Simulated assay, not measured.
Amino acid sequence: MARASSPARSTRTERASLYREITDKIIAQLEAGCVPWVQPWSTGPGTAAVTMPRNAASTRAYSGINVMLLWAAAIENGYATQRWLTFRQALSLGGCVRRGEHGTTVVYADRFTPEDERQRADRDGDQARQIAFLKRFTVFNVAQCDGLPTEMLVPAPPREDLILPRFRALMEASGVTIRIGGHMSFYRPADDVIVLPPPEAFHEPINFHRTAAHELSHATGHASRLNREMKGPRGGACYAREELVAEISAAFVCASLGIVPTVRHADYIGAWLEVLREDDRAIVRAASHASKAADWLLGRLLDAESPASAEAEAA
């Protein structure tokens, strides 16, 4: 008689399957020449405006790997907005998902401590071990629903007026030393300095902002900030992982400020593919670190723009 699978073993299998499913999707996009954190805006009009995806009911912004999953779904299906709902949320708002529509998978990742492990730690006087888990949810774009409030279906207008002034403010609010000059861009952890060519050195001035967002994302990993693992020789796996984090974070920052993301280092795609093929959790981890990096930078910007901050400067 076959032995029944334990719930814990089934959960581990489902989690591993979900990591592999997500990773295979990202690998397929990269192999096809579509970088999933920039591609949604490369196909011209008719697609969603440059913005971060949000839950239409709670207005909460999605983060981590979910941003890329929803961006990819929006461009594949030609949705005009980046607002998403669960089936039940659509009903609670007086609407419904149209019959025959297929949802998009998003995930919720966290860690928990089993009760028996908590008891063991208490008994032995050491720290309890946490277990990572990943859960699957299905969401639908508001364009897949009927009966929703009209304002949910109207794309948010682009805020071109926010791009340059707010990006300058972002750079200043970061507190990172930024030296503009020369012909190379890089972040130097040893003395916590970013070096950038002047804006006029770029073929398109907007690329100065994209490049600066990339280097600022690297800087968030400094020990005095998010303390991210950044060591490793150029071309190695650790180096490729950190570049992946910085590229995705820069895309999140740019999208949040209305700047179209782009690939700053297209030649890294081969290294990213190698990392993803070897570790099916690498893209989820990288997206999580990228969200934290972008949140750190944008959080400093919001703090600097707050009324309390303005009053303190005026005092």
Rank of each mutant, 00 (worst) to 15 (best):
P198D: 00
D303Y: 12
A294D: 02
M184D: 13
R120M: 06
S288L: 09
P157I: 09
C238D: 15
L85F: 03
G78W: 11
L148W: 03
R166T: 12
W41C: 02
T177K: 12
S306M: 12
W272V: 07
R54G: 00
R83F: 00
P307V: 10
S291G: 15
L18I: 08
R118M: 07
C96Y: 14
R228S: 09
P149C: 05
G125Q: 06
G270S: 15
A61I: 13
T86D: 10
T11H: 01
A213F: 04
H214R: 05
R15K: 14
L70Y: 04
A250Q: 03
L257K: 03
T23H: 00
A128V: 03
V97H: 01
G232W: 04
P157C: 08
R179A: 06
F202K: 02
D267T: 07
A57H: 13
E243I: 09
A8N: 01
A282S: 11
S185V: 04
E311K: 13
L216F: 10
C145M: 09
S249D: 06
R168C: 14
A169M: 13
D192C: 05
W272C: 07
V245H: 11
R300G: 15
D146P: 10
V67Y: 01
C145R: 02
W272N: 08
L226E: 10
P199L: 02
L297F: 11
A128E: 02
T11G: 04
A246V: 08
G44S: 09
V263F: 02
A212G: 10
R281T: 15
P53A: 04
S6W: 07
E172W: 10
G232H: 06
S92W: 07
A271E: 09
T211Q: 01
A308S: 14
M230I: 14
P155E: 07
G100N: 04
T138M: 11
Y268Q: 07
P198T: 06
Q82C: 07
T43H: 14
F140V: 07
L298F: 08
S256I: 03
A190E: 14
G299Y: 08
P45S: 12
L70P: 02
H289R: 11
P158Y: 10
R159Y: 05
G125L: 05
Q119P: 00
R210S: 12
M171D: 03
W84I: 02
R54W: 02
Y268W: 06
A251T: 04
I269P: 01
K292D: 12
V35Q: 09
S185K: 01
V263A: 14
A57S: 11
